[in-house]
């Protein structure tokens, strides 16, 4: 009986703490969101650049792109974050936020470039020929005809990558960013109650992922208009 009442008490403590800590967590959630949005946006730019290098058919550019993807995929994200944080900060002053964001963007960019390369190459080469046969240049056809179709096809895997990127931002805790995970572990150890705070932070991550999923779904719906 003691056991059961203990868990019931725990259950109510959880909600008590969830509400009482909401100020701190919401601030941390906003930081997580900022880290995610910046790293995704910059990651898309990096990803597109390296995807284009990869399909350029110019050996040296393809090689650069391959090397980038190999390095990023071949090393743990936490190692990349530390290298960027400790390495770059030695050379010139990089605010913590940007060290974390750029490390995450650099990491996401590799995966995004592979997603985009795959979808660009999956577009029927007749589309390029049709554009070219109308007098459109290679780059104009790429921009107006190929990339819009490739981006649309890339949305489901991109959405997946965005969610991974959101959760990976928790590693920024290790370079003292007060984002969700850092706040949860700090509060947990200060209050000698790790489990409650970890469960709370899980709720916040679920909310963020749900939010991101809805946005990606809206985009997919908007872009699928030409199928209907």
């Amino acid at each position: 009986m003691i056991e059961r009442s203990h868990y019931i008490a725990k259950f109510f403590t959880f909600f008590d703490t969830l509400f009482s800590s909401s100020d701190v967590f919401i601030r941390a959630m906003l930081l997580t969101l900022e880290l995610t949005v910046v790293s995704i946006l910059v990651g898309i730019v990096i990803g597109l650049l390296f995807a284009l290098l990869k399909i350029s058919n110019i050996k040296i550019l393809t090689w650069i792109s391959d090397t980038y993807v190999f390095l990023v995929r071949g090393t743990p994200l936490i190692v990349q974050i530390f290298i960027l944080y400790f390495g770059i900060s030695n050379l010139f002053l990089l605010p913590d936020f940007w060290a974390a964001s750029l490390a995450l963007a650099f990491h996401n960019g590799a995966y995004i470039s592979e997603i985009l390369r795959g979808t660009i190459q999956s577009i029927d080469k007749g589309q390029m020929e049709a554009g070219r046969s109308l007098g459109m240049s290679n780059s104009l056809t790429l921009r107006r005809i190929i990339l819009p179709q490739a981006f649309r096809r890339a949305l489901p895997p991109l959405g997946n990558q965005f969610i991974i990127g959101l959760k990976d931002s928790s590693l920024a805790a290790f370079i003292s960013m007060n984002e969700l995970f850092n706040v949860a572990t700090t509060l947990g150890s200060n209050n000698f109650d790790e489990m409650t705070y970890l469960l709370i932070v899980a709720v916040y991550y679920l909310i963020l992922v749900a939010f991101l999923t809805i946005i990606v779904n809206l985009f997919e719906k908007k872009l699928s208009i030409s199928d209907r």
């Binding site: 029927d124 007749g126 049709a130 554009g131 046969s133 104009l140 107006r144 179709q149 030409s226």
Partner: peptide
Amino acid sequence: VGMVFQHFYLFPHMTVLENVIEAPTHVK
């Protein structure tokens, strides 16, 4: 020198009208 293909290769993300005006507006 215009070209018409066996498999049409219309631009699927554009309406019929947008397909037709694409090259004149962006090239010419």
